[in-house]
Nucleic acid binder design. Structure first.
Lengths: 208, 208
DNA sequence: CTCATAAATGAGATATTTCTCAAAAATGAG
DNA sequence: CTCATTTTTGAGAAATATCTCATTTATGAG
């Protein structure tokens, strides 16, 4: 059996941890295939190739493994993102870079996308993390006089919703850079950047 | 027992139709309380105050009653909307009016909101209807030279996502006109209307 | 009011999913 | 290699939900 990302990452660090990681990978796979609501314990153990009872050695219930899966993915994605963002000073450039990279990473790992999209409902922490991350860049842009908005949580919700649209569209229709750049442009427009300037920033970030 | 909207509407038109309407009302109520995924047949029959078996005299399964509920709501909302839209020629004004009215109607009937929000996933027809409705006004605005965009289904999805944000925010935090006007402004910005002009249109529509 | 028909009832059969636990297998420290 | 300990196993008990249907009740046309 081929191993998933987190089972791979667990390497040889003890049988228990390896099984646990395999279960998390399996849960992610099942969510991608059937959606978060339809996930059954048996689906997970079958996909992980362990006995049904094994699930309960590791997790209390469905919610617990879903939270762990979402969290593991977020940690992973944040690390990749941080690397790309270091040293970027311009607010609009930061927002577009973060958005585009985030979308790209998640769309490239479509199994992760389903968990991230479903996770915003089920794992409050996920949304909070995104909020903190995004808000800093928005405020930077405002301080630089590049964004003409008041930074509120309603604004953050709107931007996250647009990012979700880009993810969902590419999950359905396949990877498509135009979708990402169009949504990035929309986000800048939302922030009070003119259409012309928005196009310029987006194309400069996406063609490096 | 107090009756819900559709049971009321059914009036005295035959026992079967009255029971059916009561079931639809009950389904809407249960969805609002526990979400679309968690809905159980028994919850519906209990809320409708009928025997469990009665459900099957009217509907094949869960999906069927949910579709019927969503459809009934959409018909109702569309009728109210059409009345308000008649005679408005200006594209931006139409978009803001439709958006604001739609949000207001649904937020005023919070039970409906849950079905509408959940329905976009489960009832493809719902999204298609919204698409058709919205697209016409977008194209009108473009033809009038008021919107600086290409009308694509990606654009429609983005606008629908922003409307959903406004609905969700007010479902959680209670009715709040500022939320609606802020989101309407965002939608206009998305469509290439300048911040100043957007504010003007929104405030002129929302203060009549 | 009467009666044929339509509709509702709810007990229980069937189906699905979760969860437990005694027994078996695997692990790794010494 | 040995063996106390950890982990896995999977059969089946328990819980939950769906759906059927023989019977009862309500309806409204005549």
């Amino acid at each position: 059996m081929r191993h998933g990302h987190f089972r791979e990452q667990a390497g040889g660090s003890g049988k228990k941890l390896r099984t646990r990681a395999a279960l998390v990978d399996a849960a992610i796979k099942v969510v991608a295939e059937k959606g978060m609501e339809a996930l059954k314990i048996t689906d997970v153990t079958t996909a992980a190739d362990v006995a049904n009872g094994t699930f309960y050695n590791h997790f209390e219930d469905k919610d617990e493994i879903l939270r762990e899966a979402a969290f593991a993915i977020v940690v992973e994605v944040s690390q990749k993102l941080d690397a790309d963002m270091a040293g970027i000073e311009d607010g609009p450039t930061r927002v577009v870079t973060a958005t585009a990279q985030f979308i790209e990473i998640v769309v490239d790992a479509p199994d992760w996308a389903a968990v991230v999209l479903g996770g915003t409902d089920h794992v409050p922490q996920l949304r909070e993390d995104a909020d903190t991350y995004l808000r800093a860049d928005l405020e930077r842009g405002v301080a630089q006089g590049k964004f003409d908005v008041e930074v509120t949580s309603l604004l953050v919700d709107q931007i996250l919703a647009l990012i979700a649209v880009a993810m969902r569209t590419q999950l359905k229709g396949g990877r498509d850079t135009k979708v990402t750049s169009q949504v990035c442009e929309s986000i800048l427009r939302l922030l009070g950047v003119s259409g012309a300037k928005a196009r310029k920033v987006v194309s400069s970030v996406l063609n490096d």
